[in-house]
Amino acid sequence: MSEITLVSKDGSELSLSREAADLSPVLRSMLSRPYLEEQQSKITLNEIKPDVLKKVVEYLEYCRQYRNAGEDEDIPEFEVPTEMSLELLLVADFLNI
């Protein structure tokens, strides 16, 4: 499985699996259309702060891990720090996740 790199506002980079990135319809279409992103497997998200983006990556990997969990398996709660909730909500809306 290939790795995708996400670049945040201050230029710092975060990587996640292609499978996890595909869970966001927005990232998926950025990666599947014949855009520049396809060749580089790198997406620049200038609007998003690094700590928020880190949480997003965390959530996508969390989803990937548990989305096929069986009926009786326990899924842990996903923790979001209170002071980030507003900003994270806007970003989640943008990424449609």
Binding site: C63, A69, L86, L88, L89, I97
Partner: peptide, 13 residues
């Protein structure tokens, strides 16, 4: 079974 990140944020708010 997993709620969306938007739902998580809204319920927290």
């Amino acid at each position: 079974r997993i709620s969306t990140l938007q739902d998580i944020c809204i319920s927290l708010i």
